[in-house]
Simulated assay, not measured.
Amino acid sequence: MKFPPYALLVLATLLWGGNFVIGRAVTGDIPPFTLAFLRWCLAFFVFFPIAFKYVKRDWLKLKEHWKIVLVLAFTGVAAFNTLVYIGVYSTTSINASLMNSTTPIFIYILSFIFLKEHLSKNQMIGTAISLIGVIFILTGGSLETLMHFSFNKGDLIVLVAVFCWSIYSLLIKQYATRLPGFSTFLVSIAMGAIILAPFTVYELATLDSPIVWSTKTISAIVYVGVLASIVAFLSWNTGVVKMGANRASIFLNLIPVFATIFATIFIGEQLQLAQVVGGLAVIGGVILTNRK
């Protein structure tokens, strides 16, 4: 059965939106490095039968660009989700997903700084609007918070995560014609899990009660390891190929929408006015930057 590309893109963003809520929901049951490590170990074993034949075919290309693959593994696999899982200990999943919407803005800024790409008028205005939205979310709309720079620690950690994801996304864009997708993803998953392994061992060794095994915990690991990693990845890539990257990128704005819906229904988070205003500014700025 073939699904239309827009359905695949919606499915991917729905699953990624749920990832923020899952990370928040299990904060007391499984520590962040362990959750990230188990996620990518499970993803590797699920994806291995699908992608191994491509790794054998593309091994020389992967070996040639091994430094780039290592950076992809560090930023996109090891760092991004781990930092998100750490961040949601101190902030809401709604805030985290809204911060994630600034990824295109970070990419434009990095492209301008490192690749000397020209920014159009729309991109500059959209970037400014989105950054104002981020500040509004960080401060909760409070001028006093802004004046005293007393930002939520979790929000700042998630911003670092988004910065890592932006580097990953920019490299994927730059090396799209040189690095094959499936094999690069499988190898970066393996390398990312190896990077996370010593941190996970230390985390488990130093915590008195590291993991509370339950149906909720196991379901969360399966969700992030299979649905939010493999199913979302395959759905997104297929949708992008059929619809085109520019048209598909607008669907990423659905991630905070789905995260907000899931967070309010399943874990009792409440949507605040500052999040609505800041989120609309962030998403509006992103849409503006993508206009020709």
Rank of each mutant, 00 (worst) to 15 (best):
M1P: 06
K2W: 00
F3R: 11
Y6V: 14
V10W: 00
T13Q: 08
T13A: 15
L14I: 15
W16I: 10
F20S: 13
I22S: 12
R24Y: 01
V26A: 07
T27C: 14
D29M: 11
P32G: 14
F33C: 13
F33S: 12
T34E: 11
R39L: 04
W40V: 11
L42C: 11
F44H: 02
F44V: 00
V46A: 08
V46D: 01
P49L: 08
P49N: 07
I50T: 03
F52V: 09
K53G: 05
K56C: 11
D58W: 00
L62G: 00
H65W: 12
W66N: 00
L70A: 14
V71D: 02
A78M: 08
A79Y: 02
A79E: 00
A79I: 14
F80L: 13
N81Y: 09
V88N: 06
S93Q: 02
A96C: 07
A96N: 04
S97I: 01
N100Q: 04
S101W: 06
S101Q: 02
I105D: 03
I107A: 02
I109F: 07
I109A: 10
H118E: 02
H118V: 14
K121V: 15
I125Q: 04
G126I: 05
S130P: 04
I132R: 06
G133C: 09
I135L: 13
F136Y: 05
F136K: 13
L138D: 02
T139E: 06
G141E: 00
S142D: 13
L143K: 07
L143Q: 13
L146Q: 12
F149A: 15
S150W: 08
F151P: 03
N152I: 09
D155N: 15
I157K: 05
V158H: 03
A161H: 06
V162N: 08
F163G: 04
F163C: 11
C164P: 05
C164V: 14
W165M: 14
S166Y: 10
S169Q: 06
S169K: 08
L171E: 09
I172H: 10
K173I: 14
Q174T: 05
R178H: 02
P180W: 04
F185S: 06
S188G: 02
A193N: 12
I194W: 05
I195N: 07
A197L: 15
F199I: 13
F199P: 01
F199Q: 14
T200I: 10
V201G: 07
Y202H: 10
E203K: 01
E203S: 03
T206W: 01
I211D: 08
K216V: 09
I218A: 09
V224W: 06
G225V: 03
V226L: 05
L227A: 13
S229H: 11
I230D: 05
I230F: 09
A232D: 03
S235V: 09
W236Y: 14
K242P: 00
G244C: 09
S249V: 07
I250K: 11
F251K: 15
L252G: 10
L254S: 15
I255N: 03
T264H: 01
T264N: 02
F266L: 13
E269N: 10
E269R: 10
E269P: 08
E269V: 13
Q270N: 15
L271E: 00
Q272T: 10
A274S: 15
V276Q: 01
V282H: 04
I283V: 12
G284T: 06
G285Y: 00
G285L: 09
L288T: 03
T289P: 08
